[in-house]
Amino acid sequence: MSAPLKYSGKLFRALNPVYAGQPLSGEGAARFGGRFNPKNVPALYCSLSPVTALREANQVGALQPTTLVCYDAEIETIFDGRDAEALAREGMDAAALAAPSWRDEMKQGEARSQNFARRLSQAGYFGLLVRSFAAGATADDLNLVLWTWGQSAPTRLTLIDDEGRLAASSRQR
């Protein structure tokens, strides 16, 4: 196991409004699969900045309706996907992480990036810090993909919604 990172601070997600009432569920990622989670495996794709979150959620076509949420996070045991040596020890590299073919690979089973994420999760990592691969993103645009999260240490993720706005919007639907 490579020396894990810890993350403490704000995380952001730009949600499809369909999932805005369940900002901690990971249901959308489980339903469709993602670069770092196969279908039927929940994951939260969070960003370290609101702009990166918006880029991630709107990668195809024009900007669609989006609900931006913020979390307060204290997450331990994170794999640093920016570390070339750590990636090499895991049989990965930056190009494999960024490969646009992951969706096609998923049609044949498990994409290479999903296999990598599964192995990390099985090794005890709660998440992966990785650069954003969304159009227009730079090396400074970072995501934290979580496979494990909860209400307490070592995977504390707390939605910031002091005014209950998401609950109110869910009741109006």
Results as ranks from 00 to 15, higher is better:
49 S>Y: 01
75 I>W: 00
143 N>C: 14
18 V>F: 09
147 W>M: 14
143 N>G: 08
38 P>W: 02
143 N>E: 09
128 L>R: 02
39 K>A: 14
92 M>C: 04
16 N>F: 04
63 L>P: 12
5 L>K: 11
95 A>N: 09
105 E>Q: 05
169 S>P: 01
144 L>M: 10
100 P>L: 09
8 S>H: 06
101 S>N: 15
28 G>N: 04
106 M>N: 03
112 R>S: 01
104 D>P: 00
94 A>D: 08
116 F>P: 01
85 E>D: 15
81 G>R: 02
85 E>K: 14
129 L>M: 13
44 L>E: 05
111 A>F: 00
66 T>S: 12
17 P>I: 07
87 L>V: 06
13 R>E: 11
50 P>W: 07
137 A>H: 06
2 S>M: 04
82 R>S: 05
57 A>H: 04
114 Q>R: 00
102 W>R: 00
1 M>W: 05
118 R>K: 09
70 C>Q: 06
113 S>K: 01
58 N>G: 13
87 L>I: 08
66 T>K: 04
99 A>P: 02
137 A>W: 04
132 S>G: 09
70 C>G: 03
116 F>S: 02
10 K>G: 06
163 E>H: 13
157 L>I: 00
85 E>V: 15
48 L>P: 01
48 L>Y: 02
89 R>W: 04
159 L>F: 00
1 M>C: 02
118 R>G: 05
100 P>G: 15
9 G>L: 01
40 N>A: 11
49 S>V: 04
93 D>Q: 03
136 G>T: 12
58 N>P: 10
3 A>Y: 07
129 L>F: 02
109 G>S: 10
123 A>L: 03
39 K>G: 08
20 A>Y: 03
7 Y>P: 05
71 Y>N: 14
63 L>Q: 10
144 L>E: 12
4 P>T: 09
9 G>W: 00
108 Q>S: 11
42 P>I: 04
35 R>Q: 07
35 R>M: 07
14 A>K: 06
12 F>C: 09
127 G>A: 07
101 S>G: 15
68 L>H: 09
89 R>H: 11
133 F>C: 03
138 T>L: 13
148 T>E: 14
96 A>F: 00
54 L>M: 14
4 P>Q: 06
115 N>F: 00
15 L>M: 12
7 Y>I: 11
166 L>I: 15
